[in-house]
Design a binder for these strands. Structure first.
Lengths: 248, 248
DNA sequence: CAGTCCGAATTTGTTCACAAGATAGTTTTT
DNA sequence: AAAAACTATCTTGTGAACAAATTCGGACTG
């Protein structure tokens, strides 16, 4: 085994653990604009837009040529996407775009509803005017993308709107968890995108949400949040049953 | 699509007939008993038991020698732990055991409470007798570990108990999310372990929870679930303030 | 004497080549 | 001719060398 170069150094290692005395609030080595995150994001986009369908194979070598990089990076990106629940990796056989059963989708949306309702329940009223205006700007962007038929724009502006909305609750862990669960169902996003009526409903909900925020009407906001999640799951389940029959 | 590099090598063919003789763990599909998961689990144990303290550096080479493997595996394990939120990776500078501020801990426990309450709210009553008995067995194990002062045993039996309890709710996504959040605070688990009174309180809560399950008293169960989470967060925050002062 | 700059040692990050596993197509045997 | 086995090829997984980045220590200069 690897005794070739194992102990090049004397066993005594510098005790680095005792630097703990200073303030804990790290400077937040913020973003990671690296190659692997670029691949991750691009793959996610492809999946969201339906350019890659569930159960499609993701061959490392192909992706390398596609992204002009080498397998190491692609490999890491696939591991990352696996943890996000967007792709599924089978040992020694590679990765495929994950296919969710209606049951799984129902479960995920159940948890999402609980968490998003929690977010709007704890967010402090009244909402500062600046925040309302920021939300309106994001909503306008979303609306524009819907009109233009720009699906990628729809996707991102929708993500940004919800990030800003739930961001108002102030609980970072909650925000992260909500986004994580939203990413899990990326693979079925294309079903909602295919339906213009659904896109319009989404837009209308956003407007009403802002209105509820402006007037500090919490009950309305909660009801809207619940309603907002329903169509996406239902659209997918309908499409799934149509393809595979009702045996679920 | 062999564009650039395609090193087809027709020579490699030392196919040693069939190695079908060894079939110890046949399917091997679902589980991942691989090297990297072993490293991940062991590191997590070390952190939970306080063998590695927050802000301590995790040097890849050291871990390699420790686990008799090479850096590729260790690297993946660290990436995995980073995603779990147990360690923090700083670009080009390596990984350290993550240090949580009281604010973060409070937020995480807030979300945990919401999700765990959801689990006990949706779990179907009455609970089958077999499940009750399984919980009692796990609780007995936990109790034994507490009496024996076996901290590793306490940790694992506690994990198993809660996995079984929340598993009753039937929502896989919810279960996974709950466990994920529990793992995030692994680093502060050692504070609870240091306190025998807290361990006894935990044990008592488990007994009462089983009782509530047996008699289908949902309100009691919810109240117990809320109460059960409180002490751990409070113990950590107290310890933290004692070390760094009240400026939080 | 203080401050800065350069260089060595340590540690992480990248790359490439090879080996093992799996699938599919072809051949051989019954 | 059908079934089983073998081979050829594709794909993932592993290991180790190489390269870039950071930190720490010492020397040099203002």
């Amino acid at each position: 085994m690897a005794t070739s170069k194992a102990s090049r150094k004397p066993a005594a290692r510098k005790e680095a653990a005792k630097a703990a005395a200073d303030a804990p609030a790290g400077p937040d080595h913020a973003r990671e604009p690296s190659v692997v995150s670029r691949i991750t994001r691009k793959l996610e986009e492809d999946i969201v837009l339906g350019r890659r369908h569930p159960r499609e194979r993701l061959v490392e070598q192909d992706l390398c040529e596609n992204f002009n990089t080498h397998r190491g990076d692609v490999r890491l990106a696939l591991f990352e996407l696996e943890k996000k629940g967007i792709v599924q990796r089978i040992p020694n056989r590679g990765a495929i775009v994950r296919d969710l059963s209606p049951g799984e989708v129902t479960e995920i949306y159940g948890v999402r509803e609980e968490l998003e309702v929690m977010a709007v329940r704890i967010l402090p009223f009244p909402v500062p005017k600046d925040d309302i205006e920021r939300l309106e700007a994001l909503q306008a962007e979303h609306s524009r993308a819907v009109d233009a038929g720009d699906l990628l724009g729809v996707y991102y502006s929708n993500v940004h709107f919800h990030r800003a909305l739930f961001g108002l609750c102030g609980n970072r862990c909650l925000i992260e968890t909500i986004e994580q669960l939203a990413q899990k169902v990326s693979g079925i996003r294309s079903y909602a995108h295919a339906n213009p009526a659904a896109l319009n409903a989404t837009r209308r909900d956003h407007v009403e949400m802002i209105e509820a925020l402006r007037h500090s009407r919490r009950d309305d906001l909660i009801a809207l949040t619940r309603r907002h999640l329903k169509p996406a799951a239902q659209a997918y389940i309908r499409a799934y049953r149509q393809r595979f029959g009702d045996n679920v």
